[in-house]
Each structure stands twice: as structure tokens, then as C-alpha cells.
Simulated assay, not measured.
Amino acid sequence: MKSQGPNKTPNSDNSTGLGLDQLPEKLDAQTALLARQLAPILLCDKNEPFKPVAVGITHLRPGQPSPSFGHINPATQAPTGTDSILEYEIWWDGDIQHLYELEHVWIYLDENNAAIHVTASAHGKMLDMSQSIWQDRQVRLFCEPGKHAHSPTSAQVIERREALDKACSDLEGVGDILVQPFFAQQLAFLCPYDHYLAFDHLRNLRFKPTYSFEKSFDLSPSSLHELA
């Protein structure tokens, strides 16, 4: 799995609210090692057709906003004793209804760099993952089939079974290439035929979820080796 470093270039419209003087600092070797050790393990459906293909890391200080999740500040869910936050930006080439997707996991650290809390993204929200199981120093998070929103338990994913089955098998919700405002300039070359190809690709990836989370992606060893 290929990884990317934490340095981000602000968007031309500054849509994240970050100026040049607010950009997160580059990870030092010690923090990059910690990021590997604490990297989440994603548990996916046995029939999941996608996989995460890139991971970015940002080391956030108290109150510092996320460079890629600008509508909610991770600090708003920081428990007492939080000294900093490790943000994992997880790039998927698509979800079952549109091409490309960026999900997030936030691990909250105390002054000794011990993990004391975790939150993660789900359909644009930031949710508490404190019910999750930890394997050594790594949190294990469940991903919705086809959609990849995070949950702390498989039971919470299965609660959405009816909606997820429909999303993964029904043509009605199949879209094309998702063009967010902060990518609009870079994707200005897209034409209707490009979107048709995306639709056709997603149509052919439709599947029936099993809700057996046998496929796992450990984001720590090989995926983050370029960060230091």
C-alpha cells in the first residue's frame, strides 16, 4: 500500500480554513514511528471490492484544525488529558456509489504519547469509537460494506443492513466521479464520458455483502514506511 506524507498544500480557495502559517508540521522520525505503531486495522466485508490505497498522517496540536476534514475540528471530541492528535487520512479509490473516498481516524494522545481515545469518520460525521477492540496498540475498526464508514462494532454495521444491501446492489444509487469544491479545479478536465465510465465501472462492482468481516487491512507496517 502506498503512503503519502503529512504535508498538505492549502487549496486555492482555502476551503479548509488553513493558511500557510497553520499547516501541520512535517512528522519527525519519532512521531512517524508512533504513527505506525498506533495505525488502525480496518475490518471489511469478505466480498468488499475496494481497498485503501494511500494513507496520510497529520500530527495535530490542541485546537489545530484538520487540513482535510475542515467542517469538524477533532479537538471538539478530545477528552481531558489530550496533548495531541494523530489524524489518519485514508484514501479509497471509490465507494460503491461514487469514485474516490477519503475517510479519517483520529487517535488522541496524552503527554506520554499513550492512546486515550479514538474517533473516526462516518458519512461526513465524526463518531466516538471508544467501544472498539484494541489489538496490542492498534484499534480495530469495522467498515461498512461498499461505503467504508467506520463503526466500533460489527453489530452497529449490521443495524444498517437494509440500507447497505440496497447501496451495494441497487443501480438507483450508483453515481460517478465525486467532484468536491476543493478538487474542482484539478478535475475540471472531466467530461460526461468520464463520468459514464465511472458509472459503468461501479455498476460492474455491485455485490452482496456477507457481513462476515474476514478481510482486514493493517495500515501500519508496509503502508507507512515512507513517512519517516
Rank of each mutant, 00 (worst) to 15 (best):
D128Y: 07
Q138F: 06
I133K: 13
I133V: 14
L141P: 01
R137M: 07
S151N: 11
K147V: 15
Q131K: 13
A149D: 13
L141W: 05
H148V: 03
T119S: 09
C143S: 13
Y108Q: 00
K125D: 13
P152E: 02
H117Q: 08
S132P: 09
L127G: 05
A149L: 09
W106Y: 15
E111K: 13
C143N: 10
S132T: 12
D128R: 05
S121F: 04
V105H: 00
H148P: 02
G124E: 15
M129T: 01
I133G: 09
I107S: 00
S121N: 06
K147C: 12
T119E: 01
T153C: 01
M126L: 15
P145Q: 04
L127Q: 08
E103K: 10
I116N: 04
A115D: 03
M126V: 13
I116T: 07
Y108K: 04
L109K: 02
L109N: 03
V157P: 10
H150R: 12
N112A: 13
W134I: 01
D136W: 09
T153N: 03
P145Y: 06
W106C: 01
A122R: 14
M126P: 01
S151T: 09
A114C: 11
E144T: 07
V139K: 10
V105P: 01
L127R: 11
H104S: 04
G146T: 12
